[in-house]
Design a protein around this nucleic acid. Structure first.
Lengths: 179, 179
DNA sequence: ACCTGAACACCGTTCAAGT
DNA sequence: ACCTGAACACCGTTCAAGT
């Protein structure tokens, strides 16, 4: 049977399933979104998902990548702004990732792909901060611990409920303290 | 039947079950420890646990409280030490809580008791730091954001693998930055 | 190649029944 | 009062069977 003539191609359907997963994971959380519920929302049988994705963690990693990439592509426009503006903007962008932060930490020890993604996320964020501080004349050795602190605080902001003013105050304090 | 003559009293058995839970939760993690496995280790039927604890989250909260309380009682001896020593010591104590940090964040939205415990933990930690900074002559308004940053970094240290030197460098940088 | 119904081994929890 | 065997409604995942 000529499956290439199917009204929906494989990558198209895969993308559609990913969209549904992204929506439900970010809205209800990973744990609260069962594969069955996800399948139902996508109008397929639960096991159909396993034709497109290895397992639920693979789905998680793809959702994380898609969201992060979307955020980072916008982030590049802010590279010339002061560190305070950058951090505030990152915190706001990653706000939508909030429901998945604790999930990543919980799943990382149980899933190699999630663990790799998590390590890469930290390395990437720290590298960004180190680069920004280096540009402002701080040596790499002195910048690295500060970059890790900034990443931890960013992660803290991501994983805890926090008003906009609190967030801005925190970031201002952090930036003042670090330079 | 005179149950009070039972060889093991209710609170004794409850404490024993809690010990088993503490051991398994801290060793294997909350998610990896099923109620059945826990029951097996304690040599009772799985549903017996529900006679002593409302549900699995209640067991988690009790384990958290026991571990935290043990840590904090030791902490009081360090109250006169410099902030750097204090923080380092806290980070080392809470190292054993590492496997449960992400669990607390993951369960908090789904369990009111866990959510309350988490809120109390943050409030308590921040109050400690604010008090320490106040003692060192920093106003409360200026201390609060710094205390929150310190708490976030502490939580970051708790939830991520980190060598002892890295941890000490981080804490030194943080303390230098905040005062 | 793509999709499904049925089944598997688990999970936390409940309930009726025992002592 | 304390404990259990059996059952419930779920979960993520697999497999044989369909087209």
């Amino acid at each position: 049977m000529a499956r290439t003539r199917s009204p929906v191609t494989y990558p198209e359907k895969r993308a559609r399933l990913l969209e549904v997963a992204q929506r439900l994971f970010l809205k209800d959380g990973y744990e609260a979104t069962s594969m069955s519920k996800l399948a139902e929302q996508a109008s397929v049988a639960p096991n159909t998902l396993y034709w497109y994705f290895a397992d639920k963690d693979a789905l998680l990693v793809e959702v994380l990548n898609a969201t992060l990439q979307r955020g980072m592509s916008e982030y590049l426009a802010y590279v010339e702004e002061p560190l305070e503006v950058q951090l505030g903007w990152l915190a706001r962008v990653f706000e939508e990732l909030r429901p998945l932060v604790s999930t990543v930490h919980a799943r990382a020890p149980l899933s190699a792909p999630v663990s790799v993604w998590h390590a890469n996320f930290h390395a990437f964020m720290e590298a960004q901060f180190v680069e920004q501080m280096r540009k402002r004349g701080i040596s790499v050795e002195r910048a690295r611990p500060s970059a890790r602190i900034a990443t931890f605080v960013l992660e803290g902001l991501m994983s805890h409920e926090c008003s906009a003013e609190e967030r801005d105050t925190l970031i201002r304090t952090l930036v003042n303290a670090l330079d």
